[in-house]
Simulated assay, not measured.
Amino acid sequence: MPFLTIAHSTRYAYRHPVSFGEHRIMVRPRESHDQRLIEARLDITPAPANLRYIHDVFGNSVAIARFDRRARELRFDSVVRMEHSPAGDHAVAIEDYARAFPFTYAGEDMPDLLRSIERQHLDPERIVDSWARSFVKDDRRTDTAEMLATMTETIRREFTYVPRYEQGTQSPIETLNRRQGTCRDYAVLMMEAARALGLAARFVSGYVYSPSRGEGRVGGGNTHAWVRIFLPGSGWVEYDPTNGIVGNRGLIRVAVARDPMQAVPLSGSWAGFPGSDTGMTVDIAVHLDDDTVPA
């Protein structure tokens, strides 16, 4: 059971002193049976006049900072120490009625899943629909778990990962046409493909790490994005199409949302002379305790 230390630093720099509006910070991992916080510290420079924490509509922990002074630099430093319980695809247990696709969610679950099934992107030519349906076997039984694992691995294998530091995502159709994108783009594509098949899917923002020296991970050095899909019998299951991961092995959840814009790690505003903004730098490091890193 790995113990991790996650250091996440974000720095904004300005040529002249500027004032700051309200900032919302989502960097605190969600506590659950598979991830337990031991310590979490958030340092902000300059110190905010007021800092409070809330849980948003999805249960994510959000820090809200308000400022009363001007500065040429704004810095957010988060250090988290936690315990993580990785589980792979072997831990996915699906109810008998849902093991073969298609299936229908239970009546008591459907009202709460509907918004996560609704499509978020227009697909007038059914491009995403057709791609999603290509994973369904017409001539024989389609195994639900196998179908989703194959979709995850197909994106990892056939698409080219290209880092992009600007906010926002490509549309699923853009990602399919370009055959490349960031982890956010891949997550949105798989989320929409799952929804096209009538499955409930949510966007996840968090951190990725290598559980062992022999396992490389793409998407480190910045926040990472993947998908959760609701499967009867296992609940919300993690799928990371960037790395071809099924399950939470190497994945630390911070924010879960219906849409990527609801899971932005840091957002806010500033006011000052035009051209004052000289850029942003982000530094993220995930360290495993030496005695928890297998060879």
Rank of each mutant, 00 (worst) to 15 (best):
F103N: 04
G233N: 05
S171D: 01
M147C: 09
Y207I: 00
N50A: 11
T154N: 04
G250P: 07
I54G: 05
E174R: 11
P29W: 01
T182I: 05
G168H: 11
Q170D: 15
Y12R: 02
H121P: 02
R253Q: 14
L4C: 03
P232G: 05
F159I: 00
L176Q: 10
H8T: 07
E146I: 09
V286Q: 11
L189D: 01
R126Q: 09
V264F: 04
R28C: 15
S85G: 06
I25D: 12
E174C: 05
R69T: 13
E166M: 04
N60D: 09
H16G: 06
S116V: 00
P163M: 00
M190C: 04
D289E: 14
H55K: 12
G268K: 02
A200I: 05
E215Q: 14
H224Y: 02
R141H: 10
V79Q: 13
G279T: 07
F76I: 01
I173S: 14
Q120I: 12
S210D: 13
V246T: 15
M110A: 09
M147K: 07
E22M: 09
D68H: 01
P102W: 04
V264E: 13
D283S: 14
E73L: 11
R70C: 10
G198N: 01
T152Y: 09
D259W: 03
I6H: 13
P172A: 06
F67Y: 10
R184L: 08
D96P: 09
P294V: 11
D240I: 01
H8V: 09
H8W: 08
G221C: 07
R115G: 09
A87W: 10
R30W: 10
L42T: 01
E174D: 15
T242F: 06
M191R: 13
D96T: 00
A71D: 12
L51P: 01
A13S: 13
V80K: 00
G220C: 03
A200F: 02
M190N: 05
E83A: 10
R141F: 08
N60V: 03
F230W: 12
R157W: 12
D89L: 07
G221F: 02
A271E: 13
Y53I: 04
H90F: 11
E153L: 15
T142D: 08
A263I: 02
A149G: 06
P102A: 00
R126D: 11
P48K: 05
P232A: 02
P265H: 09
A13W: 04
W226L: 02
A91S: 15
P294F: 01
C183F: 01
I44V: 12
C183T: 00
T175R: 07
Y186A: 07
V136F: 06
A7D: 15
V162A: 06
G216V: 08
D112W: 09
T154G: 00
S269L: 08
R66P: 05
E215I: 15
E95Y: 00
M280I: 06
R75K: 14
A194Y: 07
S116G: 04
Q170W: 14
L51Q: 12
V162Q: 12
R184Q: 13
A295N: 15
G250I: 13
S134W: 10
Q170T: 03
R28M: 12
G181F: 06
Q170A: 13
N60M: 07
D283N: 11
D143N: 14
F203R: 04
S32R: 07
A71G: 13
V282C: 07
Q262D: 15
R24K: 14
L74G: 03
H287S: 14
S61G: 00
P211S: 11
V27K: 13
S269Y: 03
M151C: 04
L122F: 02
